[in-house]
Every structure is written in C-alpha cells, then in structure tokens.
C-alpha cells in the first residue's frame, strides 16, 4: 500500500461524525465611502495612494513620485516612462536593481488595504525585487472585505496571484517596524 493510501485509510478509520458546513450568520464589515476608506487603510499598510484626476498623466505622477528612479520596468501600454520591458528578459535575475515596477491591480479590499495582483508579466519576480512598486487600480474596483473578494466572478482564474498590502516589512528585531525587508520598500497605488 502506498503512503497515500495508508494515510487516507487511517483518516477514514479515525473519521469523526461529519459536521455540516456552517452558514455565515453575520453581516461582514462594509464601508460607506470606498475611496476614502481605501486611502486610509493603504496608509495603515504603509502605502502611498494617489487619486488620478481627469487629464492627469500617470507617467508624470510616477516620475514625480520617484524622481531618482533610473530603471522603470513595465509591460503596460501607455507607461512610456518605462525604461525596460521586463518581458524581454530571459532570466528573472536580470530584474535585480530595478528601481520602479509599474503593474496593474485587479481590485482592492477596503478592510485591509490589499490589492489583488495576477501574474501579468513573464517573471513574477518583478513584483518583489524592485525597490518601489506602482500599482494602477481602477477606483471602481473596490470590495469591502475578503468574503466579497473571493466571491468575485472569475476569481479562481489565475496561475499565480498575490494580494499585496503595502511595502515589504518586518518587526523581527525587537518588534521595531522596519520597511523594506526583502520586497518593495515603497508602494504607490494610483487610483484611476
């Protein structure tokens, strides 16, 4: 008998009385002013946010937010401030040293500041290795909480996806919060 079959046999042998699946009998957290709440919670997560006004150019905002940036990587149409198309790189290691990555978020979650990022570039390394991350997000795509997030139609349609809430952080030395553990040191969400 394989280990798999042995384990499954043991589980069946030791099985407890089947419990029915519970119904959620509560009203989850909702917010009345989505954009305001999202900007507030992004700040809690350590991220910046910018409301893109009509006629404003995203590229200008990116340049203004990260004036020192030399390498800006993006495969998004319209991001002409990009200096590198990350999809043309064979090896993800070549992304080391990227100053800013510009990517697209699918939707944001109001209760915790997460933005759902689906793999959209050849190498997912881009989301983590660049010093700063700029996430473009449609301000109409905001959900209240995780229940709504996972219930979005087509959510399961991804190979790799990540909820990102602000910059990389750690408090492993004496509980002192430090921004920039391994991933982006700065995250800016541009709400279009």
């Amino acid at each position: 008998m394989s280990s798999r079959d042995e384990i499954l046999a043991r589980l069946k042998q030791n099985a407890i009385k089947p419990e029915p699946r519970p119904e959620a009998d509560f009203q989850p957290l909702t917010f009345t002013n989505p954009v305001e709440q999202f900007q507030k919670i992004l700040q809690v997560a350590g991220a910046n946010s910018v409301l893109l006004e009509k006629g404003e150019d995203v590229n200008e905002i990116i340049r203004k937010t990260y004036p020192e940036a030399k390498t800006i990587a993006s495969n998004l149409p319209g991001i002409n401030c990009a200096t590198v198309n990350p999809d043309l790189l064979e090896d993800p290691r070549e992304l080391n040293g990227t100053d800013v990555a510009v990517i697209r978020g699918e939707f944001g979650v109001l209760e915790n500041g997460m933005v759902w990022i689906k793999q959209q570039t050849r190498h997912k390394a881009l989301f983590f290795i660049s010093e700063a991350l700029v996430i473009l997000l449609n301000r109409d795509n905001l959900v209240n909480n995780m229940h709504e997030a996972y219930a979005r139609p087509g959510f399961d349609d991804y190979g790799y996806g990540c909820f990102i809430a602000g910059p990389s952080k750690t408090a492993d030395i004496e509980q002192a919060l430090v921004i920039g553990a391994h991933g982006a040191r700065s995250v800016t969400v541009i709400l279009e």
């Binding site: 809690v44 997460m114 790799y160 996806g161 990540c162 909820f163 990102i164 809430a165």
Partner: peptide, 20 residues
C-alpha cells in the same frame, strides 16, 4: 494576521496554483 500580529492582513498573501 489580525490574531497573529495585530495587522489587518499580512503584506503578501500569495496564491500558488499553477507552476510558472
């Protein structure tokens, strides 16, 4: 994350489904 470290969420909540 709320229970563990008192954050609304962890910074990265990664979903691995298919090998890249």
């Amino acid at each position: 994350a709320r229970s563990a470290t008192g954050q609304p969420s962890t910074t990265y909540t990664s979903h691995y489904k298919k090998p890249v």
